[in-house]
Simulated assay, not measured.
Amino acid sequence: MSSMLPLPFWPILLGISGAVFGSFIATIAIRWPEGRSALHGRSACDGCGRGLAWFELVPVAGFVALRGRCRTCGARIAAGHVVTELLGAAVGIVAGLVAPGWEGVAGAACGWLLLALGAIDLAAFWLPDVLTGALAVAALGGGLAGFAPSLPDRLIGGAAGFGALWLVAAGYRRARGRIGLGGDPKLFGAIGLWLGWRALPPVLLIASATGLAAVAVMAIAGRRIAVTDRLPLGPLLAGAAYLCWAI
């Protein structure tokens, strides 16, 4: 089917779809950790509670048109909304450029699930099993559809990814007496199912280097960092995994 469609079709289609998914992801990242359903209830201003009109919900454009503020009460719209919409669009555009066709659709779907997991982990230090499971199912589906890497490589990657971080988590819990990695082993296993076992070392290396760089930047900016401070690993793994898939 991809050969029958012009090349720009895929990044445009997936980019627009990504902006829409990004808007939904931003909503669930706020509502889900608070125990609220993202599927029910009309979108409303966080400041005054006014229900939002359809044109205010248009991804990115609505934020720009309103200049980042509610048109009723003037409360600031969280920048995370438009950032997540832009990231969702970027995931789709990159997927459409790297792999125009159904393989790109599969890559974008995995990318959006990673974006949702990263956003929720960043907001609430939580990686919902249902989203990690969805990523694993999508990854296996890609293998069954014949997309690279091969299904055996994906299965080895799933077991190796989960096992590696599970051992780290178990060792940390034994040494410190508290949980250090929550759903991260499951996420790393799902990433292994998507990218195969060969991609696991670079994904972990990029995620670790990015985390160290973030800590260094915070220290340079004058933020006091304590030993007990927590840095969510989920967003780092998610970003590194999509980068490794794209290149």
Rank of each mutant, 00 (worst) to 15 (best):
residue 1 M to W: 15
residue 10 W to T: 01
residue 10 W to C: 00
residue 10 W to L: 08
residue 23 S to Q: 09
residue 24 F to Y: 09
residue 24 F to D: 04
residue 29 A to W: 03
residue 31 R to C: 06
residue 32 W to G: 00
residue 32 W to E: 11
residue 33 P to W: 10
residue 37 S to G: 00
residue 41 G to Q: 08
residue 44 A to W: 01
residue 50 R to D: 15
residue 51 G to P: 07
residue 52 L to F: 15
residue 54 W to S: 10
residue 54 W to C: 10
residue 54 W to R: 13
residue 56 E to H: 11
residue 56 E to S: 14
residue 57 L to V: 12
residue 61 A to Q: 13
residue 62 G to R: 08
residue 68 G to T: 06
residue 71 R to I: 00
residue 73 C to V: 07
residue 80 G to R: 09
residue 95 A to N: 05
residue 115 L to F: 05
residue 120 I to P: 01
residue 125 F to H: 10
residue 126 W to P: 04
residue 129 D to L: 10
residue 136 A to C: 06
residue 141 G to M: 06
residue 141 G to R: 03
residue 143 G to N: 04
residue 144 L to E: 06
residue 146 G to I: 03
residue 149 P to I: 04
residue 150 S to V: 05
residue 157 G to A: 07
residue 157 G to Q: 02
residue 162 F to M: 03
residue 165 L to V: 02
residue 169 A to I: 02
residue 169 A to G: 09
residue 180 G to L: 02
residue 184 D to T: 13
residue 185 P to H: 08
residue 185 P to R: 05
residue 189 G to S: 04
residue 192 G to P: 00
residue 193 L to Q: 05
residue 200 L to I: 05
residue 203 V to F: 01
residue 207 A to E: 00
residue 223 R to A: 11
residue 226 A to Y: 12
residue 227 V to W: 13
residue 235 P to S: 08
residue 243 L to W: 07
